[in-house]
Design a protein around this nucleic acid. Structure first.
Lengths: 201, 201
DNA sequence: TAATGCCGGGGACATTTGTCCTGGGCGATC
DNA sequence: GATCGCCCAGGACAAATGTCCCCGGCATTA
């Protein structure tokens, strides 16, 4: 019997996954959580064999929790299940020790199969996505450039970003300019969008 | 027997919905499509009693198809099922004759219940969302302002937008300035984000 | 020890953006 | 026929943005 933890914020998707996987004879859902903050506690109490983690979650993201979960429960395999096929997501997931990476686009049958293979010790990666990850390369951004881009993503002015990060406007300007150059874009909006698309934020 | 059409692009969600609803004795899935372009043809050939439409779809959006579907098959009730609880979405859906509006956050049980009630002629709306729709009011934007905002959403410069819409830069500037004023925001990024959030695009 | 890279900060400068004003054309409405 | 709102367009101007310099501090590496 493979014990499963599901972390997914969208109620309908979470219920559906739990119901469908629960129908399988060899699978058992031992925990369902809807926020990233709840993952660790649920993993500690229910000791699942496989954790199904969404990335975009309220609280901490699945990718954030991943390293901690791997450290605390190395025998629990992690399958990242996400809507967005972003190269940087895949890269970070694999570097943090995920056993698999699945996009929600595929048919549901893929899911149960992937869970079984992962429980058996295999690794699962979408080949097309892996290629994209290699093509896009690792993030060219420094930590600060990432921070500044992330803070500028919602249309904040330079003054806003400077205030939010406790930096001077000059510094913010310089980091932004540098990020724009590295991403070969024309302004911070394009730079921020590209960075988000590649999973660099 | 209630005949159902499902339009949903995310494979895993579509499969899960079809499977779960198919388990109900009084429901029958007669068509599943993954793009907005395919909805009309499927509705014509399979003549469903209820159509479950996602909004964000490749090709035409569910809201785009809605009026046409209502006109061609008035006896087919439409239930909009979406990830995003945007006031403008709800408003457009109801004005175009949708019988219900459901957010994917809720539990799956809601869904089958909603389908039955809609098939029986009732109307379903999330009360909290309805309140938000009334609070946000109708879109204050003119058609052109909407176009220009939508074109500027991805970080395009004014020159880009002007070229894309075959307008002069002055005109684009003016429409943007007007949209910024109407949305009480500080720049086009904020204006575009707010408009998208409210479902005005 | 020297070189390198990231970080925080500042100044000068050109470009872009946003605002306000003007104007003409067009369709709907009164 | 006049009025109103929207559309398109241009000019003038202030503010924000992006680029290119500069500097010093600090940690890692060669």
């Amino acid at each position: 019997m493979i014990k499963l933890l599901i972390a997914e914020d969208q109620g309908m998707m979470r219920d559906a996954l739990a119901l469908l996987l629960g129908l399988e004879d060899d699978l058992e859902i031992v925990a369902q959580v809807s926020s990233g903050d709840a993952i660790m506690a649920a993993a500690e109490t229910h000791r699942p064999d496989v954790a199904l983690l969404d990335i975009e979650l309220p609280g901490r993201s699945g990718l954030d929790v991943l390293p901690e979960l791997r450290a605390a429960r190395p025998d629990c395999a992690v399958l990242i299940l996400t809507t967005f096929a972003r190269p940087g997501y895949l890269r970070r997931a694999m570097e943090a020790g995920a056993a698999g990476f699945l996009v929600k686009d595929g048919p549901v049958e893929e899911l149960a199969a992937a869970v079984r293979r992962i429980a058996a010790g295999e690794r699962i990666v979408d080949p097309a996505l892996a290629a994209a990850a290699l093509r896009a390369g690792p993030s060219p951004l420094t930590d600060r450039e990432r921070d500044v881009l992330a803070a500028a993503l919602d249309g904040a002015t330079i003054a806003d970003v400077a205030a939010r990060l406790h930096l001077s406007e000059s510094t913010v300007r310089n980091h932004l300019s540098s990020a724009i150059g590295k991403t070969h874009t024309r302004n911070r909006i394009e730079a921020a969008r590209l960075a988000r698309h590649n999973g660099w934020l």
